[in-house]
Design a protein around this nucleic acid. Structure first.
Lengths: 269, 269
DNA sequence: GGTTCGCTTTTGACTATACAAATAGATAAG
DNA sequence: CTTATCTATTTGTATAGTCAAAAGCGAACC
């Protein structure tokens, strides 16, 4: 009966044993590779195994979990993919040094964020015109001079209060469909994403003083602090869009909870 | 000769063929699973395959790349791990919907960031004292009342100009070694990371007006905009540290370049 | 009409094996 | 003492199969 596997567990407490997780929630036990992954992840996140430490070699893990090398290898591959370990031939696998104090901010688009938080959101297109990029602006955006662009101003209102003014350029060469889009049903950010996949983005977050026109639409005083987000997006060297969003400092902040080993679990509806 | 593999390539242009990459840079060809991965990734990032589209089933990919199912499966697993596709039994694998307009800011710690940008960085510990958390503060931080904490103020100077004031609490129960640390050689953020691995962090970024004491140390006017970063870190339900960093708005911004499919390649020195 | 049941497709998990590539550490040569 | 060479170890890639679990689909049934 080739390929049939008898499953037993390593005796806990044995010399090199890494306390194999018995975890048995709801009577279904996790796949072996996941248990190996979790056991090692726990060891690393708890600090028991520190950056640079060598983790047991595949042969020993095979022994401890009574599984095949492929299964161990799969677990280790995921740990590599998640940035928790590095593997080196002949040397072994080691706990990776964490990215030094890296902070990651996850910023969803405004309408999504508002919806998730249970707020009512609407947007108003304040202006909409088609222009050509002049020399200065083209240089600043690293886009070809004379490109046709759609220039938009869009106000976002959450719970009845203006929360952001969005000033956006969309390159019509890259996104020709934008020419005839009114952005009445979906705000520009959302519409764009459904139309154009992007391959690269650049972000800048700053604190600036409200200029006169911003202060007027956002119902605040001139000079008050604003949170300023600039985002520029490309699709394979073609610029897609450039947007600058001004948020009133007293009404808006970016917040996120983050784990070093990004748990990605996205489901398709 | 079991296990030996003869490598040929699918005829390009054949009915279902997905234009198998011939890529042959430097005469070494990539592992098959990597070629499959890249081919599909390219298709998705270029927009040829759009969110929700079904990608060829494993059987067909096996046929096209003339490899085993495990190899195809490995490629697809990586695509899942990277968030590019989702797989559903019986249904097939589909291009994942991108996280709606998600922006990710990568913020390194100040000294690292300065070093990377080629600036000279130094820090000064302005104050350092050990206290116990009072009721109000404990509640705010969701930490146990009466916990011993180390309270620090640290000024960061880049290229001779004050660029940030850091106000930090370190829980001495979680990080006992901090009690005798002077933070003279490494700034608190860096030192902490080398001592304590963390499992969860919360971040908030805001724009605020400079208060009197902040304005004084950062050599700016009261009321001018400041970029304000708050970061709280836990290790397995134990709070590690809470820090608030104020940056002068005119001298500091967060910037990052980001790709939807995070390329992770970290090497150990 | 709707509901249940079983068939079939497709992914998920795993084994056992083979050989390749890198390289740390020992050994030999200069 | 330094440098080149060998070798054993450890990871990397891949094969060819097995069995399991989920779920779409249609047929039979109410």
């Amino acid at each position: 009966m080739p390929g049939r596997r008898v499953r037993f567990e390593a005796a806990p407490g044995s010399a090199l044993a890494i306390s194999v997780s018995r975890q048995r929630k709801g009577d279904v036990l996790d796949p072996i590779h996941q248990r190996i992954f979790k056991d090692i992840e726990t060891r690393i996140l708890s600090g028991e195994w520190r950056p640079g430490d060598r983790i047991p070699i595949e042969r020993d893990l095979v022994e401890q979990y009574q599984c095949s090398r492929m299964t161990v290898s799969k677990a280790l591959s995921i740990l590599v993919e998640r940035g928790l370990i590095v593997r080196r031939r002949k040397a072994g696998s080691f706990v990776a040094s964490p990215q030094i104090d890296r902070t990651v901010m996850d910023i969803q688009d405004i309408s999504t964020e508002a919806a998730l938080a249970g707020y009512e959101h609407r947007h108003e297109i304040l202006s909409r015109k088609i222009e050509r990029l002049d020399t200065a602006e083209a240089a600043q955006l690293q886009a070809p001079e004379g490109s046709e662009v759609l220039r938009l101003q869009c106000l976002h209102i959450v719970d009845g209060r203006p929360i952001a003014i969005e000033r956006r350029l969309i390159l019509l060469d890259t996104v020709p469909l934008a020419r005839d889009e009114s952005f009445a049903s979906a705000p520009p950010a959302k519409w764009l994403l459904s139309q154009v996949p992007w391959s690269r983005a650049r972000h800048v977050i700053r604190a600036v003083s409200a200029d006169a026109s911003t202060a007027r639409v956002l119902l605040m005083e001139r000079g008050e602090p604003c949170l300023n987000l600039i985002r520029q997006t490309w699709q394979n060297e073609l610029m897609v869009t450039h947007v600058e969003i001004m948020h009133p400092g007293d009404r808006f902040q970016f917040a996120s909870v983050f784990q070093p080993a990004e748990k990605r679990s996205r489901r398709q509806p």
